[in-house]
Computed example of a mutant assay.
Amino acid sequence: MFVSGVLEGETMDTGTGPLKKETLVEQAIKRMERMIETEAWPLGSRIPPEPELVQLFGVSRNSIREAVKSLIHVGVLEARQGDGTYVCSKSSLNAVLCNQFRKADDGEILEVRRCLEREIARLASKRRTNGDILEMQNWLRLTEEAYCMGDYDAYVQNDYRFHLAIASATHNRLMISLYDSIAESVQGTVGASIGRRVNQFVETMRIHKDLLGAIERQEEDRAANHVEELLSLMRRTLDS
């Protein structure tokens, strides 16, 4: 509800002078970002139309328009002519990194993955919970099942979810956000090699299972080495 220039749930500004419009816009942006972060507005979904946003956030149409424009500018939202506005990235950081990764070649992406995922494996080994292990086991099982069924789109998606589960086991929000930001590129390199990976599938799954086992046993160095082994295999597959 919009009350005396303050968003409902926000504390009244006790400073002198009127509350500036920019403050309302910034608050609306934060609320929208929160809707995206919590997946109340999932990636790929259309956000509510302007009149509903006015009611939802309790600000004027102008404030809503400015907030939406700001998120479009940083790549979080995308306006589609005659079809509304859609969520195209989870955060401005995600949008910026995705844009940079789209310009990179597979070799550059694998080098970044090597630096990031080795440390992720170490931290996950140190901090993982039993729940984290169950999550990894579930996604690895689904990955293997998808490949065996010939559903390669599901294979790529589930493989990524397995690695995201490892990142989540670090319990470091920035690390998780960074890894999630390269999702498109991770899936792209997996997808690019999948047609040539038939003979390597058994080895790939063996490395995945060894990686999971090392994390479960909290063997940090061994887990990092399995990441290196996996990415080296992917590099050879892409080069073949």
Rank of each mutant, 00 (worst) to 15 (best):
R122E: 13
D159W: 05
R102D: 14
F162M: 00
G131Y: 12
D159I: 01
R196W: 08
E184N: 10
D180T: 06
E111Q: 13
C115S: 15
G188P: 11
M136L: 12
E184A: 12
R128E: 08
K103G: 00
L178R: 06
Y160P: 10
L142M: 07
G188Q: 12
D106M: 11
G195I: 05
G188S: 09
C148K: 15
I176T: 10
N138D: 13
A104C: 06
A169M: 03
A154P: 01
H163E: 00
R102S: 15
V198G: 05
Y179H: 14
L134M: 08
Y160I: 07
A124M: 11
S125P: 11
E184H: 09
E108T: 07
A146T: 00
I166G: 01
W139T: 02
Q137E: 15
D105L: 04
D106C: 02
L140K: 06
H171V: 09
L164W: 02
D132R: 04
T189G: 00
E117G: 10
V186A: 04
L164T: 03
M136C: 05
V156S: 00
Q157L: 03
A104G: 05
I166Q: 09
G107M: 05
Y147A: 05
E111T: 10
G188R: 15
V198P: 01
V190G: 02
A169K: 07
R197K: 09
W139A: 01
C115G: 12
R102T: 12
N138Q: 13
R113K: 10
A121P: 15
D153A: 07
A183M: 10
A104D: 03
W139P: 09
R196T: 08
R197I: 03
I133H: 15
Q137R: 14
M149F: 04
Y147G: 05
S193N: 06
L174Q: 04
A165E: 07
D153T: 03
V186W: 02
W139C: 01
N158W: 06
S181H: 06
I109V: 13
E135M: 10
R114H: 10
V156C: 01
M175F: 07
V190T: 14
L134Q: 14
R161Q: 13
